[in-house]
C-alpha cells in the first residue's frame, strides 16, 4: 500500500502575525514555521494505516523552496519513508491550481493507493488543492476526516456532518483531507530523527509553470475593535444592564 501525504510548510498561527506596513504581505521575519497542523494529522493517519496493514510506503510530497526541507525532515522523523520536494523559488506567489497541478504530475507518476492531506493550509486557507487533485485523478474524495480505521483492506473514515458524527467507507484509490482529529499526531522520537537523516529526499526541478489565475493584491490587518464596556454593577443589576445594552444599544435581542 502506498500513501502520499501532502505536506505544506506554514507560519505557526499560534504566534501573533502582523501585516507589513505597506500591505504588500505578511511580516514573517521572526515567526517560527511548522508543518501545516492538518497535514500532520494526515501523516499520523497514514502511519496508523501502515501499522495496521503491516506493510506499506508513505511518501511525503510538497511544492516549496529550500526551507521546506526542515518541515519534510520532521515528517520523515515522524515515520514517513521518503519524500519528494518540487522546488519553486517562491511558493507564496502560486495560486491553488498551480500548486495542485505541480503536485498532480508527481501523484500520477507514483500511482498511490491513497493521498492524504489537510482540509486547509492554515496560512492562505484556500481549501482547494485537495478537491482539485481528487477531481483530476478521478479519486473518491472525502473532506474533513476526524478519525480513520483500517481493516479488511477497507478504509473507514469518520466525519462530522450536519446530521451528526458519521462513518463512511471510502474505496481506493482515494483522497482524504483531514480536519482536527480525535487522535494526536505523534512527536518524532530521537531514533526517528536520526533515521530521517538517511531517508531519501528527492528534489525536483520545475520547468515552466502556467500563468496565475488568482493574484494577491493587498494585505490588511483585521479591523480594530472599539473598546468594550465592563459592566461594573452589583449582582443582579449587572445582568439587567447587560440585557438592556444588548437590546437597546447593540440591538441584538
Amino acid at each position: 500500500m502506498k500513501i502520499i501525504v501532502l505536506t505544506k510548510r506554514v507560519p505557526d498561527t499560534g504566534t501573533p502575525i502582523k501585516v507589513k506596513g505597506d500591505g504588500s504581505g505578511l511580516d514573517l521575519s521572526s515567526i517560527p514555521f511548522v508543518m501545516n497542523p492538518y497535514d500532520e494529522y494526515a501523516l499520523e493517519a497514514a502511519l496508523k494505516v501502515k501499522e495496521k496493514k503491516g506493510e506499506g510506503e508513505i511518501v511525503l510530497l510538497a511544492v516549496g523552496n529550500d526551507e521546506y526541507k526542515e518541515t519534510i525532515r520532521h515528517g520523515l522523523a515522524m515515520g514517513a519513508d521518503r519524500a519528494k520536494l518540487i522546488k519553486v523559488e517562491n511558493p507564496f506567489v502560486l495560486d491553488a491550481i498551480q500548486v495542485a497541478n505541480l503536485l498532480l504530475e508527481e501523484i500520477k507518476k507514483e500511482e498511490p493507493d491513497a493521498v492524504f492531506c489537510g482540509k486547509k493550509a492554515v496560512d492562505d486557507e484556500r481549501s482547494y488543492v485537495h478537491a482539485f487533485i481528487a477531481q483530476k485523478m478521478n479519486y473518491s474524495y472525502l473532506y474533513g476526516a476526524v478519525n480513520i480505521d483500517f481493516g479488511d483492506d477497507k478504509l473507514k473514515i469518520m466525519k462530522e456532518t450536519e446530521r451528526g458524527l458519521a462513518t463512511f467507507e471510502v474505496p481506493f484509490p482515494c483522497l482524504i483531507s483531514f480536519d482536527k482529529c480525535q487522535f494526536e499526531a505523534r512527536y518524532p522520537s530521537l531514533r526517528g530523527i536520526m533515521a530521517a537523516k538517511k531517508k531519501p529526499l528527492e528534489e525536483l526541478e520545475v520547468q515552466n509553470i502556467p500563468e496565475n489565475r488568482v493574484v494577491s493584491i493587498k494585505f490588511e490587518p483585521p479591523p480594530p475593535k472599539k473598546p468594550g464596556k465592563i459592566i461594573d454593577l452589583p449582582f443582579p443589576d449587572n445582568v439587567k444592564e447587560l440585557v438592556r445594552l444588548l437590546k437597546e444599544e447593540a440591538k441584538v435581542l
Binding site: 507560519p11 498561527t13 501573533p16 502575525i17 502582523k18 501585516v19 505578511l26 492554515v122 496560512d123 492562505d124 486557507e125 500563468e211 496565475n212 489565475r213 488568482v214 493574484v215 494577491s216 493584491i217 493587498k218 494585505f219 490588511e220 490587518p221 483585521p222
Partner: peptide, 23 residues
C-alpha cells in the same frame, strides 16, 4: 473586482483578483 478573505486564522485579510472571466 477584488475579493477579500481572511487568512492565517483571522490575523490578516487578503484582497485578491481573479484573472479569468469565469470563476
Amino acid at each position: 473586482l477584488l475579493f477579500k478573505r481572511p487568512i492565517v486564522a483571522g490575523k490578516a485579510y487578503v484582497w485578491e483578483k481573479i484573472n479569468t472571466e469565469r470563476f
